[in-house]
């Protein structure tokens, strides 16, 4: 796989990530459709998320935007489960992960469409 192609896939995923839209959700399918094995693509998505989000998080923390009381009840089970399910991912066939992720993407996009449509309609209503 050429350096340039991988760089471009990262760029495309990163642009959306920088806009706060979850770059990993686009990076993984991009990499997989380019021929990167499913589990490598997942690992790349995880690792490439770290530097940018650490930088963003430190800015948010300085601006006092983090609701500390809500971090622990969310983060504790999230950290435990992400370790467990990362292990599980390693034992599952790549095909199952690919299909599962695809279904997750389709569902997410449908929720997004709904949200986008309702905020569009709300804006139209406000204009009238």
């Amino acid at each position: 796989m050429s350096f340039l192609l991988l760089f471009l896939a990262g760029l495309a995923g990163g642009v959306f990530g920088g806009m706060g839209m979850g770059g990993g959700t686009l990076l993984i399918p991009l990499l997989v459709l380019m021929g990167v094995p499913q589990k490598f693509a997942q690992a790349m998505s995880l690792f490439s998320f770290l530097p940018m989000s650490a930088a963003a998080l430190s800015v948010h923390a300085k601006n006092g935007l983090i609701e500390r009381g809500k971090v622990l009840p969310l983060a504790l089970p999230a950290v435990l489960c992400s370790a467990l399910f990362a292990l599980l991912a390693f034992f599952l066939p790549a095909r199952a992960l690919r299909t599962g992720f695809a279904v997750f993407l389709v569902f997410l996009s449908l929720f997004r469409f709904r949200a986008a449509l309702s905020s569009f309609l709300a804006e139209k209503g406000a204009e009238k």
């Binding site: 760089f7 896939a9 990262g10 990163g14 690792f47 940018m52």
Partner: peptide, 25 residues
Amino acid sequence: YLFCGVPFGTLLPVLLGTSAGGLWG
């Protein structure tokens, strides 16, 4: 993922891409 042995030879270009893309976005 790292301990389970996913090779990271291809990680660098992707990381450079997402960093540049992130700033751009």
